[in-house]
Each structure stands twice: as C-alpha cells, then as structure tokens.
C-alpha cells in the first residue's frame, strides 16, 4: 500500500469571512495535513500559514465584513502541497508588505504586520495573483520530503 503522502489528494472548504471561522479553518487544515502524511511540526506550520492568510483576507480584503467568502483548496501532487486561498474582497498583495522591524513596531506600539512575514518563513512559496474573475488568489506552497 502506498503511504498516504504519496497519493494525490484534493480537499475544499468555503467559509464566511468571520474570525469565528478561524478555528473551523484550523480543524479542516489539521485533518487535511494528516491525510497528506504531514508530521506534527509540519502540520503546525501549515495551519499557522493558512490562519495568517485568512486573517489577512478578513482584515484587509473584507475589512472585517463577515459576509465574504473565503475558499480554500488543498492539492497534493507528487509531494508538492499547494494551498490556494481565494476571496472576492479588495485586492491585497502580500508581496508588497515590507519585512517587519520588531523593535520599530514595538516602539510605535504597532500590533500588526507580522503575519505575512510568518507565512513566508513557514512556507516554501507565497504567491499572489488576481484571477480573471477579479478574485484574489494567495497560493501557499510546501514541498513535502
């Protein structure tokens, strides 16, 4: 029998853009990562990266309106895990956010700005594009060894 992680796999979830749903997203990601054969450490990284991406969507794309849709598609193909997260809110390119300066943020009593940096640290690739239907797509890529 093939190990789970050698299989190709696809999972989908659509939730409303409420911070309430971050726990739903984490539960979904926990199950999907287990199906992909990820160990605890890797599962933790993937869950956090997706949480950060969805938090950014709620905050910046939908400006805390809980009526928007967040779509999550997980695809495992030949040990490459691609998590595609879509929304129909305002365009927000995480690539344009500067690397945070912790000391400076602290002096300014600034609470935000760390999420994208974390996503980049946790995943192998963080890609952003605007789809033909004007939705935003954030793509998180991890190569499973």
């Amino acid at each position: 029998m093939l190990k789970n992680r050698e299989k190709n796999l696809e999972r989908n979830l659509v939730v409303k853009s409420s911070t309430d749903n971050l726990s739903v997203i984490r539960e979904f990601m926990t199950a999907a990562a287990a199906d992909c054969g990820c160990n605890d450490e890797l599962t933790g990284k993937i869950i956090l990266a997706v949480d950060e991406a969805c938090t950014n969507i709620i905050k910046h794309a939908y400006k805390y309106s809980p009526e928007g849709d967040i779509g999550i598609n997980i695809k495992l193909t030949n040990s490459k895990l691609v998590i595609s997260i879509t929304d129909s809110g305002e365009h927000f390119n995480p690539g344009e956010v500067p690397t945070p300066n912790l000391l400076e943020y602290q002096k300014k009593k600034k609470a935000g700005g760390l999420g994208i940096f974390l996503m980049r640290k946790l995943m192998d690739e963080v890609n952003y594009k605007i789809l033909n239907d004007n939705r935003n797509l954030v793509e998180l890529v991890k190569h499973l060894k």
Partner: peptide
C-alpha cells in the same frame, strides 16, 4: 496551545507602555 501573529501583536502593542 496555539498562537498566531494576531496574538504576538498584542504583546508588541503593550510592552512599551
């Protein structure tokens, strides 16, 4: 059990005070 950057940000926002 779990923290995201939203949680980390709280400490950053209050430690200076």
């Amino acid at each position: 059990n779990y923290i995201s950057s939203a949680g980390l940000g709280v400490f950053m926002a209050y430690v200076e005070t």
